[in-house]
Design a protein around this nucleic acid. Structure first.
Lengths: 242, 242
DNA sequence: ACCTGAACACCGTTCAAGT
DNA sequence: ACCTGAACACCGTTCAAGT
């Protein structure tokens, strides 16, 4: 039944390689004991190296040179492990966001930080959208909300604006990561977009006039720039309502 | 291996419950052969009944009273099957969107249609965000793009605006569906939100000032209204740039 | 051509047994 | 207290064999 010992795990979650001292256990094989942190770190490395499907308890156990069952002593199940790994990445990304002069700039910086973190760790994306209300999401929400407040949005609009920005940031990052995962090499991206643009141009003129028209733009668009452009629209809308 | 016979499957994909031949269905042995359509329909029913995890080839085979391997004759793999089911739902949802007086209204209707479809079929959400560039996504993109064009957005902004709206719509719908899945009964929703709001209010005042402040709004917010509010911000931003 | 179902190579999770 | 690894109950997918 395994009700977890880790379910109340604090949101602190930083990558954490610092060990709390204490060596020379009688055991001679591994001198450092297993711990939640060590497991989460190994899981992150495994996810980054092998992708989402690469995280199995067997592979993780091998990396930690232990048995698969041992992991369950520290972690309730795979879902919790993924959530903890996600929280660690997001917390670290938010910690690196530089301070900004204006609220608008600050929001753009936060958005860019999350976007890049998910771009680097695509598996974080799927996790964020599947398990909302976790520590990682709330961190982003708070940071954005403070800036929306600073923009002078009225009471009712504050919640809506912050929610919209959060949803947009996570939504786009997830889709971007999903696409990146499907393409692998960056060389493929250019080739894929060129092919896709050609396909759009060949669509029926009556049924798909818009996509035919913007096909050339698709071929040479920059994902990050488009993402931030969307943030720009939302911010303009929020500013217009102040 | 397994190069599929179905990989070039047309994007036509409508729910297709209309059988061309028989009208009387005898609750006995199936007299009609397996087909891509019948399999997709059964998969949709199974996904709706049992959720994402409920779709297994064994369960599907049982529902179709056949062997699990038989399905592979008509469908390349599970991914293709999910994609086909998703396309069917989205196409049907877009088909039901009423005509509108203004482009803004039209975009809101399209957004609401997709939102409700995903709310009804939560598994569609995960699929849309994991496999972009499929027929389902492109349908939505084209519909929105035409309206953005009608709003008078300039060339460069058209692609960005349509992309932002598409990403927002899919992103929010996905997160909404994920949350709904985690909660099941609607009674739980109110209780969950009340509890969550209380939790926010107990957060540290220095670290989480925003979430403390909007906690009461969280408790009584309406997901669909918030979603459309976000669309409103984007539309206002786009209109401001015209 | 289409279907059947056993077989294969995996999973996440549990648990008796060890230290 | 913590760890080990076999065992269990599943998967998606393949394929020889049937009609």
């Amino acid at each position: 039944m395994a009700d977890s010992k880790t379910s109340a795990m604090p949101a602190s979650a930083m990558p954490a390689s610092a060990k709390p001292t204490r060596t020379k256990r009688r055991a001679e094989r591994r001198d450092d004991a297993l711990s939640n942190e060590r497991i989460v770190d190994a899981a992150i490395a495994l996810l980054d190296d092998e992708g989402e499907d690469g995280l199995t308890f067997r592979a993780l156990a091998a990396r930690l040179s232990t048995g698969s069952g041992a992991i369950y002593w520290h972690v309730a199940n795979k879902g919790q492990l993924l959530a903890a790994a996600t929280d660690a990445i997001v917390a670290s990304a938010l910690g690196k966001v530089p301070v900004s002069a204006t609220p608008q700039e600050a929001i753009l910086e936060i958005a860019a930080g999350v976007f890049e973190a998910i771009d680097e760790h695509p598996w974080v994306g799927a996790q964020l959208s599947h398990a909302p209300w976790r520590a990682a999401t709330l961190q982003i929400f708070e940071r954005i909300g403070q800036q929306v407040q600073a923009m002078g949005a009225r009471g009712g609009a504050q919640f809506t604006a912050a929610s919209a920005l959060l949803s947009y940031i996570i939504g786009v990052s997830v889709q971007n990561a999903a696409q990146a995962r499907a393409l692998e090499a960056p060389v493929n991206r250019a080739r894929f977009l060129a092919k896709e643009a050609a396909r759009w141009q060949a669509f029926d003129a009556r049924e798909f006039p818009f996509m035919r028209k913007v096909a050339t733009r698709l071929a040479k668009h920059d994902d990050r720039a488009e993402f931030l452009g969307g943030i720009g629209f939302i911010l303009a809308g929020v500013a217009a309502a102040v």
